[in-house]
Amino acid sequence: MQTSNFFLALIVFLSLYMLGSSSLKGAIKAFSLQGMCLGCLPLTLSGGDLKIHILAIASGIFILKGLLIPRVLNYALREVKIREEMEPLIGYNASLLVGAGLVGVSFILSHRLPGSPAIRDSFLLPASLSTAMMGILLMIGRLKAVTQVVGYLVFENGIYLFGLAFSYQTPWIIEMGILLDVFVAVFIMGIVIHHIARTFDSINTKNLTQLKDL
């Protein structure tokens, strides 16, 4: 339980770091680290009872979220010149403040959720809810396409954490399918980012506002 809580705390701090940092590379690195922590969690949560499918899922997450997805994102950035988030829609200090508030809110929320006390009192639910909400904040608060994808991935990490609380009920084949879907999604988003960068010579989503109703 101690090690799990350490990893969970690290995951939340990394989400906060992403909210406060302006560098695209830094956000991708933080996400990679978060993915690795996420990959270690199934091992520590199982309490020494290592089954083959837990090992498979843990290594799957570690490799896909910790290594492969960050590489895809970096690859999508290869033709992009400006790698700083210049004018975020929601400022860094403001996002950090809101992020801290969200952590508090998720503690209150998870105590009000119905369920067995063992799950309610663990750090898993508040960590998952706050990570998911911070991911959404990243998605809507940033203008660079890559940061929006990172936001989506953080959101998905949060939901995955929620699933961990009930993972003994989810067959491993489904968990693998979910993981694979997320990877393909990032792959396609990476290709689209590459096209955006080539078409507009920038990955600022402000360029993507031509379509609207008159």
Partner: peptide
């Protein structure tokens, strides 16, 4: 450019929804 914008919005909103 326009279909790129449409694809991006579709991917982002659907991903959020599916999450």
């Amino acid at each position: 450019e326009k279909s790129l914008e449409a694809t991006w919005k579709y991917l982002m909103m659907s991903s959020l929804g599916i999450g």
